[in-house]
Nucleic acid binder design. Structure first.
Lengths: 336, 336
DNA sequence: CTGAAAGCGCTTACAG
DNA sequence: CTGAAAGCGCTTACAG
């Protein structure tokens, strides 16, 4: 099992307490002794056992990332990846490890076995079993993305409502009036917020919203979106000249379905995505979309969690990041 | 800190040893006692402390996933995501947590602090500093993907060489002779293997390979591929009628560059990708590509690692998964 | 400035 | 079938 603190103490002719002090940079050790111990640590290749340290200090040094969604949907989503990058950067500076959980049983274990010091909760939906375990665990938690109850945990999220609102307004400014909205499932609070943004913009402009104009796709996934839209286009009842989507992936599905049904984008149909993932720029045509600083959302959330763990007061519990429109090729002004 | 094993022991009027036996399902506890203890555990909501258990059993219950590449490149890559899904599934069954490391310092900590019981190494390149730490850590390790030394660690990987070989042969069967190859950097062993497959197929058919026909892109990334190809197309010296790529992402970059330079795919240029990530099917045109069972690669690697940790003999240390061609829309027969 | 000792929460020979 | 005790590798009052 390698060399431990006792070995070092013995070799240096001091107590383990002194060695421990040197390792953790605590004051109160003579320069001479410190130097000697450091040298011996180097020579013997000593590496602290984080588990043991954790036991003694009653912390684990791990942060759990939990998302109730299927791993492929979350991890395969550049949206989350970018956020994770930000998270990773901050945890790094504070010497935390990231423990990911993709399955229900992993999440349960994570939350019930004192394996982590705090939780970053992603993409939760109403009714997710994880929420109950989380609650019972009493673990410091920060939510990333929209959540049912802003008061339950501190949170960081993009301004979903404002983002969609802006997108709709932009299309209206381009002359569109028959604008439909492709949304994710309403079990996601994000979807509800996005929906509100859409309705608000339409109402403000006194544009009628028929039930066909809100298309709810059961999952934030390209393929699901593709299938749903394919059916719609084939039925021939699709009347809109523009569509706003609650995610870039949804938009990509719409685009693919449109193309294979002979609907040209943007000439026959204008399209706006949401999130600005790398693919939005790479598709053909490139997708006009709503952008926000995902990495920063991640790093702020991580920072808040660390403060929470340290028992520091959090100034602003719920942070909302503004979104801005990125103009690309998928929108054009409506021709009369 | 919640209720611990002592509390349970006291409440049940037994020793902690007995409680421990019940928890870990060890034999040698009376039915009555066992029942009683189980009930009390339930009532008091006891959850074992994995850290403490780990200290006592000299294991951590964690598996580290390390990839020397930048997080966005690895994690943003559906190729790895699919593999991770397979990994996740197996680790789950064996009650292991997954600890991810995205940055150098995280990896160093992971490898030097007894934080994990084993390592799954992804996408290593020659000269990566991680390799040295890994080596020094003496941790059980399984490599996923091509690696410099097949004997160093057990490994699981797709048949890179055979895959590219098949792709080239397929194009030749379609009448192409001027076939170029877009590869990743040669610091990656995967790239070297892919290159060999290309050369082998071309040589077998006695087709000349000029130096311009092998295009080495410095990173397995869409944008980098896009830029490189854009430059090439603009120079106007591009002579091939078909291109094989060492990854779907590379292929996507080629496609995007071709389209924006007025080169139609597949009519002007046939294109084959590698890996069959979800986007290969969703692009327009959809990409003909080499497919393999990525999830299975992940689950096999995880299983091998667990066997390694348990000290079981591994029957076959280096496993190679065959690849097969998936015909889509990005290739057409050469018109004379 | 330094050490002896207790403790973190669990497991596991050993003894009975 | 069960318990007392030692131990996993560290930290931290406490005392000097």
């Amino acid at each position: 099992m390698g060399v431990n603190i006792k070995d070092i103490a013995k070799a240096a002719g001091v107590s383990t307490a002194t060695v421990s002090r040197v390792i953790s940079g605590k004051p109160g050790v003579g320069e001479e002794t410190k130097k000697k111990i450091k040298q011996i640590i180097e020579e013997m290749g000593y590496r602290p056992n984080l588990g043991a340290r954790g036991l003694a200090k009653r912390r684990t040094g791990n942060i759990g990332i939990v998302s109730p969604r299927q791993s492929n949907i979350v991890l395969g989503n550049p949206f989350f990846i970018s956020i994770l990058e930000g998270v990773s950067h901050v945890l790094d500076q504070h010497d935390y490890n990231m423990v990911l959980s993709f399955t229900l049983s992993q999440q349960k274990r994570l939350l019930e076995t004192h394996s982590v010091d705090g939780i970053l909760l992603f993409a939760a939906r109403i009714g997710d079993p994880v929420l109950e375990w989380l609650d019972a665990s009493k673990l410091p938690t920060v939510v990333i993305g929209s959540y049912q109850d802003e008061n339950a945990y501190p949170s960081v999220r993009p301004d979903d409502e404002g983002g969609i609102y802006q997108a709709v307004k932009y299309l209206i400014a381009k002359g569109h009036t028959r604008i439909c909205f492709v949304n994710g499932p309403l079990s996601s609070i994000k979807s509800i917020r996005c929906r509100n943004g859409y309705l608000k913009a339409m109402e403000e402009e006194k544009l009628e919203v028929t039930s066909e104009q809100i298309i709810e796709v059961p999952e934030y996934d390209v393929l699901v979106s593709l299938k749903t839209m394919n059916r719609l286009f084939k039925e021939g009842k699709f009347q809109s000249t523009a569509v706003v989507c609650a995610s870039d992936y949804l938009a990509l599905g719409v685009m693919k379905a449109a193309i294979s049904n002979g609907i040209a984008i943007p000439n026959d149909l204008s399209l706006i995505g949401f999130g600005d993932v790398p693919f939005a720029e790479l598709s053909h045509p490139s997708i006009t979309t709503m952008h926000t600083d995902l990495k920063k959302i991640g790093s702020q959330a991580a920072q808040m969690l660390i403060n929470e763990i340290k028992g520091k007061k959090i100034r602003k519990r719920n942070r909302v990041f503004p979104m801005e429109l990125v103009e690309r090729q998928s929108v054009c002004a409506l021709k009369q």
